[in-house]
């Protein structure tokens, strides 16, 4: 059946099988190959794109479900068309070394774009939880989290600085300090 989907601001259309996954539509019909498929179980998020502005996993959407809607992939971000990562998120991934092999990157970037658009007061914990739907096997997430904080206009070192200045027991930012320990301190 015929579908029409706006992709990165351009109208696209094709006659497709209803079972065609949106990820394959983007890669094979439109020819945009940045969006990757990393799993079969809606787990890894490498295929994340924006659908009408919301981050979704394009491996778990049929192209026909996106009929008449608009999709944004990493290729649609600012600077992408001339090969310069000038969008705040891609620029921060570059500056903070937020990618290694690059396979998770297009999905991770689009999740970050969505996360930042939904919350103007991100901190490390929120970024980590906000990226729970995207797996990266290379970076250990450390620099991805930094990049997203930078892109959101936050100081990625803020929590480490606060911790260094504090006399309190040093623990990783955002993690439980232990309920009873807190009570004991209170």
């Amino acid at each position: 059946m015929k579908v029409q989907i706006s992709v990165n601001g351009e109208d696209t259309s094709a006659d497709v099988e209803p079972r065609l996954l949106l990820a394959h539509y983007l890669r094979e019909q439109v020819g945009l190959k940045a969006t990757n498929i990393g799993c079969d179980t809606t787990s890894c998020g490498a295929c994340t794109v924006l659908l009408d502005g919301e981050a979704v996993k394009s491996c778990t959407l049929l192209a026909v479900q996106a009929e008449g809607q608009s999709v944004t992939t990493m290729e649609g971000l600012e600077g992408a068309s001339d090969g310069t990562p000038t969008h705040p998120v891609t620029a921060a991934f570059h500056a903070e070394h937020g990618l290694q092999c690059g396979f998770c990157t297009p999905g991770m970037v689009m999740s970050a774009v969505s996360l930042i658009s939904h919350d103007d007061d991100l901190d490390e914990r929120k970024v980590r939880e906000g990226l729970e739907g995207n797996l990266c096997r290379c970076t250990g997430y450390h620099n991805i989290v930094r990049a997203v904080l930078v892109a959101a206009g936050k100081d990625p070192d803020a929590e480490q600085k606060a911790e260094a200045e504090s006399d309190a027991l040093r623990t990783a930012p955002g993690f439980s300090r232990g309920e009873s320990a807190e009570e004991a301190q209170a």
Binding site: N36, E75, S81, G83, F93
Partner: peptide, 9 residues
């Protein structure tokens, strides 16, 4: 990175 972060690897 510029390629990886724009058209993808």
């Amino acid at each position: 990175d510029p390629v990886f972060l724009t058209r993808g690897a």
